[in-house]
Design a protein around this nucleic acid. Structure first.
Lengths: 191, 191
DNA sequence: GCCCGCATGTAACTGGTTACATGATTGT
DNA sequence: ACAATCATGTAACCAGTTACATGCGGGC
């Protein structure tokens, strides 16, 4: 039973519409990209396994090698089962925080640029969410997936805004550290 | 060259004070726990390798098997080198978002309880940060690590608060989805 | 005498990525 | 003709966790 996580993503993707393995990966990158990722090395073996179990079926298995997969009723049942399983969280590993925690050895200036970079990334993510949001809103949604999709986008936006707010705060702190004139105000002009 | 990430955490930990491998793991769990984790299976081989390279040295290698490790000058150099390396980010895999994205198959009620759970976790993390913050403030800090440590705590607080705000918003949306009475208010009492 | 917490280490497994080999289709 | 893109699949590798084997020292 490979990973169940990948299985969920694959079945979930195919529950929206039938796709080739390749298209599936593209879709995951473009739509789930801000909270999920899969590589070919995971997708193809998983598809093969799911087919063996009758959870997906190959549509045009004909000539060309390229085959579109569709989810079967059994697959839908399996998907619901997988979705209902408890969320397993990954042990945290945040490289930025690790560096910042030992930031004394790095110096305030280097830390500053790390935080600045993080802020820029958060900002760019935020504008991507707007774009994705537009996309989701402008295609019609007969089966009612939209509200759920918007939920995940909203989560991304909250996270990104929080990251930016934190970064601003952190930058102020680091500036203080960089020139810590105990007293002596108003020597150089502003800031 | 094993993982460099673990190497950084281990050298960083020993840069604060000499410790045994066991204590190192405890310290990482307790202090870096909200953004980092290491297991024995990583720590011991890494310590052995670092010793071989002269980046750490065993203090009381005497009798009892238990040995305290200290970082060497070469190790400090190496640590700074590692900290200066670009942050490598992990491909995202957020199990909660995956479930929510395909939430239509799960139904609003089940999604609601997932979000509720996430909110509770965020809330508990938030109160943990307060506790850690107290700890950090009440021991004195001759070498100036404190501001950096507070930075990482603050990041955790921002993230947790964002998660809670999002959860509240999401809960409202899911409630709407659960009873979507286009019109026709006040039929059954309260719910 | 026994259990518990400190301590060290290793082997097996897992979940995942990267890189590669291969080939069809399409556009220029 | 050739390049780019779509498409499939596998093998090698990697980081990391889990579980296990082992043993010391102290408290009850």
């Amino acid at each position: 039973m490979r990973s169940s996580q990948t299985e969920t993503a694959v079945l979930g993707g195919l529950s929206v519409e039938p796709m080739t393995g390749y298209a599936l990966r593209e879709a995951i990158r473009e739509v789930l990209g801000h909270f999920w990722s899969e590589s070919f090395g995971q997708i193809y073996p998983t598809l093969a396994e799911l087919e063996r179990q009758g959870h997906v079926r190959r549509l045009d298995s004909a000539r060309t090698g390229a085959s579109t997969f569709a989810i079967t009723p059994a697959g839908m049942t399996r998907l619901k089962e997988l979705l209902a399983q408890p969320v397993q969280q990954v042990p945290p590993r945040n490289g930025l925080m690790l560096r910042l925690f030992f930031g004394r050895h790095l110096g305030p200036a280097a830390c500053r640029s790390l935080v600045l970079q993080a802020r820029a990334e958060a900002e760019s993510r935020l504008s991507q969410y707007d774009a994705i949001c537009q996309d989701v809103m402008k295609e019609d949604d007969p089966i009612g997936d939209r509200p759920y999709w918007l939920l995940t986008i909203s989560a991304g936006q909250h996270t990104a805004r929080a990251a930016m707010a934190w970064a601003d705060e952190a930058l102020a702190v680091l500036d203080q550290l960089d020139q810590p004139p105990k007293a002596a105000p108003e020597l150089k002009g502003k800031k």
